[in-house]
Design a protein around this nucleic acid. Structure first.
Lengths: 215, 215
DNA sequence: AAACTGCCAACTGTCGACAGTTGACACGTT
DNA sequence: AACGTGTCAACTGTCGACAGTTGGCAGTTT
């Protein structure tokens, strides 16, 4: 009845590989051997190749002809360039969210912020999970499917960069404040200010990634 | 000496198929049969499948499990949503171009505009080629590789939408004026205004696509 | 005549094997 | 000892064949 989200071996391989790349289980700079991984996953090279190409199209692997697939190893310039893209997309999303949000969108955003605060007071350092949830909720409110899709892909690459730079920072407090302010401007329907606040938020996050990186 | 851009059959197939999809040679809504196309290209199904998946990742084909690949057929909502993405990206590019442009970037932009004018006076209706060249040149001036890549993909999808909507409009004069104004603001280094002008330009182009569509 | 059921052809998903290329190692040369 | 050359194993690129699924059509039932 439920059309199983992926029954295809290639689809499953995409999920498994993506997880392994994003968690750093396959470390940046390392190579992905087709036969080896295929055997490990218990599938043939065909579906695995499709999975590899798919992840490459998401920017999670880079393909070198006749050499294979590598987990990209990134430097500070990549962080800056990627955040230029992220800023373009998420500022636009913030603007759209400010003008399109419904009341339930607003409640959802406030809920995420509240949970972050609660979590923070409980001692935990603002898990990345909640940051993602916030941006995702904001994106839903923007109701722009193409922008949403691209943001999803960019955020994935940001996660990869984190592991590549050996950076695991709780940027915590400042980000929570940014999020709160963003929600307020979105509540007001102030598109221009939402964009400005988002830009400041992202430039702060970017700066922190650059300073806390081990390179 | 020149490392041949693609020797791989899959790469060649991507080029051929992309061309056929973008020109409408394979009409929107139609299906891509793997064995048939593979035979026509004189290759096996493996490389062709990779090509199909690649084009799907660019948004030029949609994949349906166990059914195959289709050229997406689009409606007005798709145009609007896609232009939201395009606007986000190209406005950011315009801002960056305004602050990063070199003198030779400026000359290149002016050249493209001049050629458009010349072409227009010669009677020709501002070929799409020159419009693309302008946006491409502006993108080079922005020096933001990730944004540039995404814009390239979006522009491709716009071309596809044109063929899907049966729209082949010379928006000509207004666009040329927009381009000229954009170049002036970029020359001034006025990032904020560059973004504004770009936004107006794209909303105009989008509106024209919507009104002149046959649906 | 409409609707349901079971079969069938066409096509995609997957596999194992072969061919061509790459980078590295060992050997010989200066 | 440093450098150039030839060989080789490992891996990717490609192919043809098999298996499973889908949508449609014919036949049957009401």
């Amino acid at each position: 009845m439920t059309p199983p989200l992926h029954l295809s071996l290639a689809g499953q391989a995409v999920d498994v590989l993506r997880e392994q790349v994003l968690t750093g289980e396959i470390p940046p700079g390392s190579r992905v051997n087709e036969v080896e991984v295929a055997q490990k996953l218990g599938i043939s090279r065909g579906p695995l190749r499709e999975a590899i190409r798919h992840l490459a199209s998401e920017g999670l692997l880079t393909l070198v002809p006749h050499r294979g697939a590598f987990v990209p190893d990134a430097g500070p310039e990549d962080v800056k360039a990627l955040f230029e893209l992220r800023t373009a997309l998420e500022c636009a999303a913030a603007e759209l969210a400010a003008s399109r949000r419904t009341d339930v969108d607003l409640v959802r955003l406030q809920d995420v912020c509240a949970e972050s605060r609660r979590n923070y007071r409980a001692g935990q350092p603002f898990p990345y999970r909640l940051d993602l949830a916030f941006h995702q909720t904001l994106l839903d409110a923007a109701r722009s499917p193409y922008i949403a899709e691209q943001v999803r892909l960019v955020q994935q690459r940001v996660v990869l960069l984190r592991s590549a730079l050996g950076d695991d920072p709780p940027h915590q407090h400042a980000s929570m404040d940014d999020h709160d302010e963003l929600v307020r401007t979105i509540a007001d329907g102030d598109a221009a200010k939402a964009s400005t606040v988002m830009r400041r938020h992202l430039s702060r996050v970017c700066a922190q990634m650059l300073t806390s990186s081990t390179h």
